[in-house]
Design a protein around this nucleic acid. Structure first.
Length: 313
DNA sequence: CGAACCCGTTAGATTACATCA
DNA sequence: ACTGATGTAATCTAACGGGTT
């Protein structure tokens, strides 16, 4: 597909944003450069897709490094430990109790402690142990009553493998605990898709249903994609502004040259000059007409002859 | 055909802020 | 002026259904 940039005009929407690409990289950081997006419609998971922006009409210069964005939040594990100590395969660990306790101490500061205690019980495994400190505020009490009401069936819902659905009740939304989310994040960092085995192991370890894990990963991928789209859009906007500015500058330069030609009619009677530009190295070489008459050495060279020079496609 | 995934949507939970007693 | 309770809009995100691969 092509990158639609309209200089000096209202930029058209970028079609690749309408059909976003799979965003994947091994370490799940985000990498972006501008350029042609692969038209390869295949959206197979875990496909390394770094080439999708390469070699397009707009090439980032060497001084213009790819925009990299790491949107993955630091997990409590990472915050408290060097990166080398991060969990390699979370689902292979026995339990995360120790990690969660440590993270809770380091985290959860601030005025929302009661709320946090409600939404983040003591461990991912014993999901709904209730922190009674919430009774310190009336609102906390209200929250607790609501939680208790939810918990009646919530415990059953949350339990791994207990699939008894809501008995016709409206669906309930169960917030994952911070620990569960952190654990899932860690897993997502390792693989942003799960095979059935991993899904089941993760679900079992977090005391969730496999479907919940599956949905979490789907939603997580969607969030990643959305963020990346925003970053792409922002970067292309800047690109467009830069090119518009350059276009303006070149137009001005052209006007000046035309004015010069008009004021000095003999100026252009020098031997015709050919500008030759190599698309690969983007080097412009000025040659006289005689030299230009000889065919260029490389077949992919093209010529720009003033005053009708056009910009390269 | 079934499984896995994506996408758009819904709705519950949470947060931020304003208002009032 | 300050504080806590309450209401409301905005935001986040778990969950769902349908379509696609």
């Amino acid at each position: 597909m092509e990158l639609a940039l309209s200089l000096g005009d209202t930029p058209k929407p970028f079609s690749f944003l309408e059909k976003p690409q799979k965003i994947l990289s091994k370490d799940l950081g985000f990498c972006m450069t501008t350029g042609k997006v692969s038209t390869d419609g295949g959206e197979k998971s875990n496909k390394s897709d770094d080439s999708r922006f390469s070699d397009g009409p707009i090439r980032a210069s060497s001084s213009d490094p790819p925009v990299q964005l790491d949107l993955l939040p630091f997990s409590p594990v990472q915050r408290s430990q060097p990166s080398s100590n991060k969990l390699p395969f979370p689902w292979l660990k026995d339990k995360l109790g120790g990690v969660t306790e440590a993270s809770r101490k380091g985290d959860d500061g601030g005025g929302d402690q009661e709320t946090a205690a409600v939404s983040s019980p003591n461990s991912a495994v014993s999901s709904f142990q209730v922190d009674f400190s919430m009774f310190r505020s009336a609102r906390g009490k209200r929250d607790f009553e609501q939680l208790s009401a939810n918990n009646g069936e919530g415990e059953a819902d949350r339990g791994a493998g207990s699939d008894d659905e809501e008995n016709g009740m409206a669906r309930k939304k169960l917030r994952l605990t911070k620990d569960q989310s952190a654990f899932l994040e860690e897993s997502f960092k390792e693989h942003n898709t799960l095979n059935p085995k991993q899904k089941l192991a993760l679900a079992k370890q977090l005391n969730l249903r496999a479907r919940q894990v599956e949905v979490w990963f789907q939603n997580r991928r969607a969030r990643t994609k959305l963020k990346q789209t925003e970053v792409d859009c922002e970067y292309l906007k800047r690109c467009c502004e830069t090119l518009t500015e350059e276009n303006r500058r070149l137009q001005k330069e052209l006007q000046e040259l035309r004015a010069l030609k008009a004021s000095q009619p003999f100026y252009m009677q020098l031997p015709a000059t050919t500008l030759t530009m190599c698309p690969s190295c983007e080097r412009v070489v000025t040659t006289t007409a005689a030299a230009a008459a000889a065919p260029p050495a490389a077949s992919n060279h093209f010529s720009l002859s003033p005053p009708h020079a056009k910009t390269a496609p």
